[in-house]
Every structure is written in structure tokens, then in C-alpha cells.
Lab assay of single mutants.
Amino acid sequence: KVMEIKLIKGPKGLGFSIAGGVGNQHIPGDNSIYVTKIIEGGAAHKDGRLQIGDKILAVNSVGLEDVMHEDAVAALKNTYDVVYLKVAKP
């Protein structure tokens, strides 16, 4: 199931950690970017929809399929206060 989640960045950013990407696979044979941690009190935690194990398909208009881990981190960092995440639920 794919959904779009709109998050408003807090003082600590979006409030979640990711793993995965080309050269840094979270699941062997899979280059996808996965949510590995939700920080308590952060934007994602308060919103409640993003969960550990969700796959991040895109940030705003930037696709995160088959990208390097660093590029995924940069895509999440290089955002304004309002961030749209395209997410696939497991």
C-alpha cells in the first residue's frame, strides 16, 4: 500500500532515521530506503503514520529508488519545513 505523508519539520528535523540504498543494502538484494528508527517527540512520531519498516519511495519530487544512501540522506536534509513523503507500507 502506497501513501503520501505530509510532515512539518520540527526543531530536530523530521524525526526518523533511514537505512538502505545502493552499496548499503538494508535487506540483501534490495536497494530500497527503509525507516529504521522513529525519534520520540519528533515530527514523524507526532504524526503517527510513518512506521519502522516503511519504505520511502520519494521525498517531495525526488525519487529514492536505486539511489545511494548518501543521496537519500541529502534528499531528506535538503527540504523546507513542509515535506511530502511517498511511502510503501510493508
Score class of each variant (00 low, 15 high):
residue 1 K to E: 04
residue 1 K to N: 03
residue 1 K to M: 05
residue 1 K to G: 05
residue 1 K to S: 04
residue 2 V to I: 15
residue 2 V to Y: 15
residue 3 M to Y: 14
residue 3 M to T: 08
residue 3 M to D: 05
residue 4 E to K: 14
residue 5 I to K: 00
residue 5 I to H: 02
residue 5 I to Y: 09
residue 5 I to T: 02
residue 6 K to E: 06
residue 6 K to I: 09
residue 6 K to L: 04
residue 6 K to S: 09
residue 7 L to M: 06
residue 7 L to G: 02
residue 7 L to I: 15
residue 8 I to R: 10
residue 8 I to A: 09
residue 8 I to W: 15
residue 9 K to P: 08
residue 9 K to F: 06
residue 9 K to R: 10
residue 9 K to C: 10
residue 9 K to M: 12
residue 9 K to T: 07
residue 10 G to A: 11
residue 10 G to K: 05
residue 10 G to C: 12
residue 11 P to E: 07
residue 11 P to D: 07
residue 12 K to G: 08
residue 12 K to Y: 05
residue 12 K to Q: 06
residue 13 G to C: 08
residue 13 G to M: 04
residue 14 L to Y: 06
residue 14 L to A: 04
residue 15 G to I: 00
residue 15 G to V: 00
residue 16 F to Y: 01
residue 16 F to A: 02
residue 16 F to T: 01
residue 16 F to L: 10
residue 17 S to W: 11
residue 17 S to F: 11
residue 17 S to G: 12
residue 17 S to H: 06
residue 17 S to K: 13
residue 18 I to W: 10
residue 18 I to G: 01
residue 18 I to K: 00
residue 18 I to E: 01
residue 19 A to Y: 05
residue 19 A to I: 05
residue 19 A to F: 04
residue 19 A to Q: 12
residue 20 G to H: 03
residue 20 G to N: 02
residue 20 G to S: 03
residue 21 G to W: 01
residue 21 G to P: 02
residue 21 G to S: 03
residue 21 G to E: 02
residue 21 G to Y: 02
residue 22 V to F: 07
residue 22 V to M: 10
residue 23 G to N: 06
residue 23 G to D: 07
residue 23 G to W: 06
residue 23 G to R: 08
residue 24 N to C: 13
residue 24 N to S: 08
residue 27 I to P: 05
residue 27 I to V: 15
residue 27 I to A: 10
residue 27 I to S: 11
residue 28 P to Q: 13
residue 28 P to W: 04
residue 28 P to Y: 13
residue 28 P to L: 09
residue 29 G to M: 06
residue 29 G to C: 06
residue 29 G to R: 07
residue 30 D to W: 02
residue 31 N to W: 05
residue 31 N to G: 03
residue 31 N to E: 09
residue 31 N to S: 08
residue 31 N to K: 04
residue 32 S to I: 01
residue 33 I to D: 00
residue 33 I to M: 05
residue 33 I to H: 06
residue 34 Y to S: 03
residue 35 V to Y: 01
residue 35 V to K: 02
residue 36 T to K: 11
residue 36 T to M: 12
residue 36 T to W: 14
residue 36 T to N: 15
residue 37 K to V: 07
residue 37 K to Q: 07
residue 37 K to H: 12
residue 37 K to G: 11
residue 38 I to K: 01
residue 38 I to D: 00
residue 39 I to F: 09
residue 39 I to T: 13
residue 39 I to K: 15
residue 39 I to G: 07
residue 40 E to G: 09
residue 40 E to S: 12
residue 41 G to D: 12
residue 41 G to R: 07
residue 41 G to A: 09
residue 41 G to W: 05
residue 42 G to E: 12
residue 42 G to V: 01
residue 42 G to S: 13
residue 43 A to C: 10
residue 43 A to N: 12
residue 43 A to Y: 04
residue 44 A to K: 00
residue 44 A to T: 04
residue 44 A to D: 01
residue 44 A to P: 01
residue 44 A to S: 05
residue 44 A to I: 03
residue 45 H to E: 15
residue 45 H to G: 10
residue 45 H to R: 09
residue 45 H to M: 15
residue 46 K to I: 12
residue 46 K to T: 13
residue 46 K to P: 02
residue 47 D to I: 02
residue 47 D to K: 01
residue 47 D to L: 02
residue 47 D to F: 02
residue 47 D to W: 01
residue 47 D to T: 05
residue 47 D to Q: 10
residue 47 D to N: 11
residue 48 G to E: 07
residue 48 G to N: 10
residue 48 G to M: 06
residue 49 R to A: 13
residue 50 L to A: 01
residue 50 L to D: 00
residue 51 Q to C: 11
residue 51 Q to N: 15
residue 51 Q to M: 15
residue 51 Q to V: 10
residue 52 I to T: 14
residue 53 G to N: 09
residue 54 D to K: 00
residue 54 D to Q: 07
residue 54 D to H: 09
residue 54 D to A: 05
residue 54 D to T: 06
residue 54 D to C: 07
residue 54 D to N: 05
residue 55 K to V: 12
residue 55 K to H: 05
residue 55 K to D: 00
residue 55 K to Y: 03
residue 55 K to R: 12
residue 55 K to E: 04
residue 56 I to G: 00
residue 56 I to F: 02
residue 56 I to V: 14
residue 56 I to T: 00
residue 57 L to M: 14
residue 57 L to R: 05
residue 57 L to E: 09
residue 57 L to H: 06
residue 58 A to T: 14
residue 59 V to Y: 03
residue 59 V to S: 03
residue 59 V to I: 15
residue 59 V to C: 14
residue 60 N to S: 04
residue 60 N to D: 08
residue 60 N to M: 03
residue 61 S to Q: 10
residue 61 S to V: 05
residue 61 S to Y: 13
residue 62 V to N: 15
residue 62 V to E: 15
residue 62 V to Q: 13
residue 63 G to I: 10
residue 63 G to H: 10
residue 64 L to G: 02
residue 64 L to T: 12
residue 64 L to N: 02
residue 64 L to A: 03
residue 65 E to M: 11
residue 65 E to P: 03
residue 65 E to N: 15
residue 66 D to G: 13
residue 66 D to L: 06
residue 66 D to P: 04
residue 67 V to S: 11
residue 67 V to K: 11
residue 67 V to P: 07
residue 68 M to S: 09
residue 69 H to D: 05
residue 69 H to T: 10
residue 69 H to S: 10
residue 69 H to E: 15
residue 69 H to F: 07
residue 70 E to K: 15
residue 70 E to G: 12
residue 70 E to D: 15
residue 70 E to R: 14
residue 71 D to E: 12
residue 71 D to N: 14
residue 71 D to P: 03
residue 71 D to H: 10
residue 71 D to T: 11
residue 71 D to V: 10
residue 72 A to H: 01
residue 72 A to D: 01
residue 72 A to W: 03
residue 72 A to K: 01
residue 72 A to I: 04
residue 72 A to F: 04
residue 73 V to W: 07
residue 73 V to Q: 07
residue 73 V to G: 06
residue 75 A to R: 09
residue 75 A to F: 10
residue 75 A to D: 03
residue 75 A to T: 13
residue 76 L to D: 01
residue 77 K to N: 10
residue 77 K to R: 08
residue 78 N to M: 11
residue 78 N to T: 14
residue 79 T to G: 12
residue 79 T to Y: 06
residue 79 T to S: 13
residue 80 Y to K: 12
residue 80 Y to N: 08
residue 80 Y to F: 13
residue 80 Y to M: 09
residue 80 Y to T: 09
residue 81 D to N: 12
residue 81 D to W: 04
residue 81 D to H: 13
residue 81 D to C: 08
residue 82 V to N: 13
residue 82 V to I: 11
residue 83 V to M: 07
residue 83 V to A: 12
residue 83 V to N: 06
residue 83 V to W: 03
residue 83 V to K: 02
residue 84 Y to Q: 10
residue 84 Y to T: 12
residue 84 Y to E: 13
residue 85 L to T: 01
residue 85 L to M: 09
residue 85 L to Y: 00
residue 85 L to K: 00
residue 86 K to Y: 06
residue 86 K to S: 12
residue 87 V to T: 10
residue 88 A to R: 08
residue 89 K to G: 08
residue 89 K to W: 04
residue 90 P to E: 11
residue 90 P to S: 12
residue 90 P to C: 08
